[in-house]
Design a protein around this nucleic acid. Sequence first.
DNA 1: TTCATTTGACCCAG
DNA 2: CTGGGTCAAATGAA
Length: 303
Amino acid sequence: MEVALSQILDACKLAKELESSLLFCVDVVASDAHYLLGSCEEIVGAFNKAIRGLYTLQNQSSCSAQMLLMSAGEGTGNHLCAAGMPAQRSLEIQPAVTQFAGGSSYANSAATAQRGGRCLVQKSSKKRKEGTLVKLVPAHPNMENPPDDGYTWKKYGQKEILNSRFPRSYYHCTHKNHYGCKGKKKVQRLDDDPSTLEVTYCGAHTCRTSPTPITIPNELMPSAVSNNNGENNMQTVAPETTSIQLRNWFNRDDSNTYIEQMQQGGRDIDYSLAEFADAMFNSESNAIFTQSQGKLQVLDPFF
DNA sequence: TTCATTTGACCCAG
DNA sequence: CTGGGTCAAATGAA
């Protein structure tokens, strides 16, 4: 665990170094997009290294490692560089219990995680389908719907289940039709604890869209057509992994021009960096980067 | 009119 | 054959 924490701290330090470079050495840094790209990939790599270390720890059924893993990867096998990460990615510990079945490298251990001191009891004797993830989440008292998990779901069925007091609802990813996303989930209230929902995720999200869609100014979009009245100056970007987005961003012919604009100070700099950070970590809700008093700051939970 | 939800029917693995 | 999962028409809400 100490090693993993150390790796996370290293990654945070790298992020802070990059922040310092961006804030105080803009002239040097901004002229070299490859330096920025290299720094970002170094940071992402450092976080991934820590995550891999935590995978190992997970095999030892480490409760605290599991909590960190859930914060970092939500059990989908996504690394920090991958898009499609659920919005709830903060270090906030949620009262949920998770169990994995085989499938992704992340889930191969089939380890039972314990969170909040509760264990998932397997009701069915049937062998669980591989590649599924089961979570127990607290049900909202007055709502049938499960709490938001960062994805958008479309309900396509509901069924009464044998020997269950409550029906099971079936959902698939809203982007199933657009991107052929295979993300699915089943939601069922527990018989012995109606205040808890058992959410079974099956199938990985392949839609590769961010739960908090990345918005990039039109002028940065390859297909951008400027709007005469200046309205609607943002576009929502769907699909592509974050690392690809970053690379494309930096490889754009006009990226240097944009960086020059960033050097001029004012909100444009902060806004651009926020977009950059958003593209990098693909989530606002657990922002590693934030804007404070007009400056981009790195949130470091360990300091 | 569009989109999400409901619900009965159908399919298929065990 | 049974039960879980999915489909698609019907329905309702915005």
